[in-house]
Design a protein around this nucleic acid. Structure first.
Lengths: 259, 259
DNA sequence: CGTAAGCTTGACAAAGTTCAACGATTGTGG
DNA sequence: CCACAATCGTTGAACTTTGTCAAGCTTACG
């Protein structure tokens, strides 16, 4: 996508010379041990594996590399593990029988997905890589045991579940009670915030999704997404060039929400 | 609301003489012991408390009665327990600063709510009684211990979390990719299904919410809800009279979804 | 170099909202 | 017990937002 960067700087009204390195995490040198992981500060599991966990025997995390478009799991597949994004971006998608689909989540490095499989024993959504990604596979049966032995793990695991519930609540709020323009503004601000937490620029980043995917996440058509991006650019709230975004006036964006 | 029924039968095109008793659960005689509870077959926790749990000391469930409109918890309040609906109906609501609100869930007897509080230690939504209700309060710290001691409890608790995640995913699908008419059809069919699981009629039931609340849940205005109910009635898919609904042609409703 | 995929924009259509009026029902206080 | 107020629901008409369809452009890729 644009991970193979250091390409020629775009010579356009907006230039993004340095964006290429902005939010690209290159995976660490292949090790399986958590405290070697470059993510350890950003990761939801930080500190747990190797310390509290150490006393109860190791939690073996296998890794998996996904290429753009590959699935980590698919709807209906047996649930066996939850997945921690190490590098790259993953979307989750829920399908309706008639082919319509809804992007229900966008997961960045340090974030965990796949918990939807616990209830029924098989996943309720597809998880697809939005770019070449590196995923930690956390075997669920081992996690269950560990969570009974180490209350720190239990606490973190419960918080993880709850966090996902809260995230989805917010998404329902967005889908159910905001207008298209507000949803796009909220989406950009949310991306900015999460990327900041990962140590990236708050104002410049790269969308990992097509307009269609963004539209599916936000409950609107790709044309509407495109028009709203253009309008925001015209109003000098953002600069946009394909998937490269610069937030120029974040307060303006914030003001867009709530009339 | 209309729980104090046995009123004069409505003399109207549609009559609902017997609806009054259809889905009203009167709470059992006050006891605190789970295996006395009239819900035990429908309840998510069925069998757990008293059997597997017995060996590890009791889980004391306090009860709370809520009147119509009262809150079980409010956004920002410290998280201490999760809540099991024993009788009555509860809605959860998420608020936007500017006053807009989104109903994010509708909980029936046997269903559990409040898990959104674990992540941050305080609730992210309000839980409001849609009619006089009886709630089991499940203290979370006790549940944490129990879940470490009894793997059956752990398993059920995790499934509960996951179930909520899946429910919210489906809600996002509904809000993000269905048209208003489809959403209303899906809502009615979902209610019918869940009430059936509780032993009530699949075809006749009472909506516990105003048109405005239904609209908020489904991401549309109250007028739209009203118009769609009228249209469904005209097309002989349902009969509706205030909050009393009879599903006349459930396959027709199903066909409404997916064009 | 040609083809496919992604993005933008315009013109028009459809869906849903807003505003307003009105009827019915319910609850309240005199 | 009645009268009044408040809440709830329905419906019409005008309006706004978003979707649909179509065309053209750019970029990526084999």
């Amino acid at each position: 996508m644009f991970a193979e960067t250091e390409t020629t700087p775009a010579v356009k009204p907006v230039s993004f010379h340095h964006v290429s390195r902005l939010n690209t995490i290159t995976s660490a040198a292949g090790g399986t041990v958590c405290f070697e992981c470059r993510l350890r500060t950003a990761c939801f599991w930080k500190g747990l594996f190797g310390s509290a966990v150490g006393e109860f025997g190791p939690l073996v995390l296998s890794h998996r590399r996904l290429k753009l478009g590959q699935a980590m799991y698919r709807s209906g597949e047996a649930f066996q593990a939850i997945y921690l994004v190490r590098s790259g971006f993953i979307k989750t998608v829920v399908l309706l029988e008639d082919g319509r689909e809804q992007v229900t989540g966008l997961y960045m490095p340090g974030e965990t997905l796949g918990m939807d499989g616990i209830a029924s024993g098989s996943h309720a959504s597809d998880a697809i890589a939005l770019e070449d990604s590196d995923i930690c596979v956390v075997p669920y049966d081992r996690l269950e045991t560990l969570s009974r032995e180490a209350s720190a793990v239990q606490r973190q695991l419960h918080r993880l579940f709850s966090h996902e519930i809260v995230r989805e609540q917010r998404m329902m709020l967005l889908l159910g009670s905001m207008r298209a323009e507000e949803r796009v503004a909220a989406f950009l601000l949310n991306l900015s915030e999460r990327l900041t937490a990962l140590g990236f620029s708050a104002s410049e980043f790269v969308l990992r999704m097509t307009r269609e995917e963004i539209g599916s996440l936000l409950g609107m058509k790709l044309e509407t997404v495109s028009r709203i991006f253009s309008r925001f650019a015209k109003d000098a709230l953002i600069e946009i060039e394909g998937r490269h975004v610069r937030i120029v006036n974040s307060n303006g964006l914030r003001r867009t929400i709530g009339h």
